[in-house]
């Protein structure tokens, strides 16, 4: 896991006046599931297209296994792409779609057929082998697209929002399927999505991008729990941002909210905002040490109730509870120092 497979150094890309990627550096490790996460237009797809060879960077360097990748034409790279639109060849059957890459590389017919069969089995597509893409459902087409790429045993598989066109239930199933295939074959995945939940579910590491820059790059859990910027914390799901003042004492740091100090982990920078996810805000009796507030709303979210608590300064904080709470009643709110992050 610690071997660097891809090294991206100071990558820049402009389309005319428009700078899509502003100096990005990133290492991708062998065998990992890395997700580029960000809103549309943040440059994540452009990075993927540069890696695939469909776009050329304006500046910068990319090494694959220590070798310069940029000068290698797209069709000579040992990298395959799963397109958002699947891009299956409409005139070829599932079997021929999957065999296409090997046919191009003149893999002997016997080996080609064996590998296609193996891939068909791995993606449960055996019974559909002779169908044309138009006769398949969205999820089936998606599996063909993945099989068509993986059968070539690429060093890196690039996936450009591959589940974007599927409905929620199928998407969840395919996420598991993707992860399973990745574990089994040990291929390095670089995955692009704008869906933070999806990113958190399937990735080893997440690169959060915004406006052509990397906001944060870390393990999925860390990115969620310790977002490095306001953008990251807001993009990765609902959060409560609380104003206050950071004060550092010898062995303990505190964050002063409305005159009361709460212990937090030591920060390098002076934090101005405290970010707490709704599920990390705990309810306690109002007379205990905590933020006091009044229940103002209960919204059923399917599994939990999302409860709005209005603090003394008027800000509404949100918490998650199994049961609804009485409107108008006053509660206290606390949090653990390791479950919050400062921004």
């Amino acid at each position: 896991m610690d071997k660097k497979l891809i090294e991206i150094k100071n990558l820049k890309k402009s389309f005319g006046e428009n700078e899509i990627i502003k100096s990005i550096s990133l290492d991708v490790f062998d065998g990992e599931f890395l997700t580029l996460l960000g809103p549309s237009g943040c440059g994540k797809t452009t990075i993927l297209r540069i890696l695939a060879g469909f776009e050329y960077p304006t500046e910068g360097e990319i090494l694959l296994d220590g070798e310069n990748l940029i000068t290698i034409p797209a069709n000579k790279r040992n990298i395959n792409t799963v397109f958002q639109s699947y891009a299956l060849f409409p005139h070829l059957s599932v079997r021929d779609n999957i065999g296409y890459g090997m046919k191009i590389k003149k893999v002997p017919l016997k080996e080609l057929n064996e590998r296609v069969d193996e891939m068909l089995a791995l993606t449960s597509l055996e019974v559909l082998a002779n169908r044309k893409p138009l006769q398949l459902s969205g999820g089936q087409q998606q599996r063909v697209a993945i099989a068509r790429s993986l059968v070539n045993r690429p060093k890196v598989l690039l996936l450009d929002e591959p589940l974007g066109a599927l409905d929620l239930g199928l998407r969840k199933k395919m996420q598991i399927e993707l992860k399973r295939l990745q574990k089994k074959l040990g291929t390095t995945y670089i995955y692009v999505t704008h869906d933070q939940e999806e990113a958190l579910t399937i990735s080893d590491r997440i690169v959060v991008m915004n406006a052509g820059k990397i906001e944060q790059c870390d393990k999925a859990k860390t990115v969620y729990q310790k977002p490095a910027s306001k953008f990251v914390t807001e993009f990765l799901g609902e959060t409560n941002l609380i104003d206050g003042e950071y004060c550092d004492e010898e062995n303990q740091a505190y964050f002063k909210i409305q005159g009361r100090a709460y212990p937090v982990e030591k920060q390098e920078k002076k934090m101005k905002l405290l970010s707490v996810r709704p599920e990390n805000l705990k309810v306690c009796p109002p007379d205990k040490d905590g933020l006091k507030g009044q229940i103002v709303e209960n919204v059923f979210m399917g599994e939990n109730y999302r409860i709005g608590v209005q603090a003394a300064n008027g800000q509404v904080l949100y918490i998650l509870q199994k049961e609804p709470m009485n409107k108008g009643s006053v509660v206290g709110l606390t949090f653990d120092a390791d479950k919050v992050s400062g921004i």
Partner: peptide, 20 residues
Amino acid sequence: NIEEASTDLGGTGIQTFFYV
């Protein structure tokens, strides 16, 4: 994208034209 897919799978311009 089907053209890019063909390139991605190793096809040259000429192969892509004739096969896809």
